[in-house]
């Protein structure tokens, strides 16, 4: 039982971070109906920003979020404006290729700047853990979880309580109607894409703390993030959180109780079942506008 509960603790803590990474993907799909294949590499960019600031300026990776978030927002906004916006007449088909090209391009740039060796960020509290009732709570994962939850709450408030949020929801529900009501849909789309990248930037700085990474880490990340999105429901923030926690929990439990070789299997079996029985995902709806 001790091992079971320890595995649940580790799974939930990891799930929070994945939820933050996935929320940006969900936002982009909700507003633009674009599956952003570059979300994984945006996370890796955030990790390298955290790594650089920590190693050269001794800025704590949690504080580096204040840099990585606006920087990734700017990158996302720029890429959307110059590379995705011109495709909007055929965005559903071409955007997949374009965002994949962005991912490959950014991976190349990261490889050129940082090389292809694995990197990690080692803070003074990196290996610390709190012992609570005999269970070990890694400090880094706990802080990353709490900060991820805080950012997700902030995202929720932004989307539900602000004018920008109303614009995003309007565009996600019916773009043409939003345009008729005076919403600048192009600007909203660019801001939403930037915001999606910004969440990856924030998550990336924390990802670099809990896991080592290299420029090619995005391949594995985007696979997981897409699977989380699909299982939770494309375009659903609640679904992203649920999918992320299910993924991390199942991996951790199977790793500990059965075999690490099978750790990904239960999640992907569930993914297949969901695709057959409920293709819109656990929290998705068939109509537009889940956000």
């Amino acid at each position: 039982m001790h091992l079971f509960i320890q595995a649940i603790i580790l799974g939930v803590l990891t799930g929070g971070l994945y939820a933050l990474m996935t929320s940006g993907l969900t936002l982009t799909f909700g507003t633009m109906r674009i599956i952003n294949m570059a979300q994984g590499v945006f996370v890796v960019c955030g990790a390298y920003i955290g790594f650089t600031l920590f190693n050269y300026l001794h800025i704590d990776p949690f504080l580096s979020i204040l840099v990585s978030t606006p920087l990734l927002f700017a990158i996302g906004f720029t890429l959307q404006t110059f590379l995705l916006k011109p495709l909007r007449h055929d965005a559903h088909r071409l955007s997949l290729l374009m965002t994949w090209a962005m991912a490959i391009g950014l991976e190349g740039i990261l490889s050129f700047i940082f090389g292809t060796d694995f990197r990690g960020i080692l803070t003074t509290y990196q290996n610390s853990s709190w012992t609570i009732a005999g269970y070990e709570i890694p400090v880094v994962r706990a802080l990353a979880f709490l900060l991820s939850v805080a950012i997700l709450v902030g995202m929720y408030l932004l989307l539900t309580r602000t004018k920008f949020g109303r614009s995003v929801r309007a565009v996600s529900q019916r773009e043409s109607a939003a345009k008729l009501l005076g919403v600048n849909t192009d600007r909203t789309a660019a801001l939403a894409f930037g915001l999606g990248a910004a969440t990856a930037g924030a998550a990336g700085a924390m990802f670099g703390l809990v896991s080592s990474f290299d420029p090619a880490s995005h391949y594995d990340l985007i696979g997981r993030l897409l699977a989380i999105c699909v299982i939770g429901g494309l375009g659903s923030n609640a679904g992203a959180i649920a999918g992320a926690v299910i993924l991390a929990l199942s991996e951790s439990l199977v790793q500990a109780e059965l075999s690490p070789a099978w750790s990904s299997v239960p999640f992907y079996v569930l993914l297949i079942i969901v695709l057959i029985a409920r293709p819109q995902g656990l929290f998705g709806v068939r109509a537009r506008g889940a956000i």
């Binding site: 320890q6 595995a7 896991s211 500990a256 990904s264």
Partner: peptide
């Protein structure tokens, strides 16, 4: 004695089992 896949990003569960 277990083998974990290369894409395993968190080894917390593996080490928890080893420690047990």
């Amino acid at each position: 004695s277990q083998i974990y896949p290369a894409e395993t990003t968190s080894l917390g569960g593996v080490i928890a089992k080893v420690a047990s």
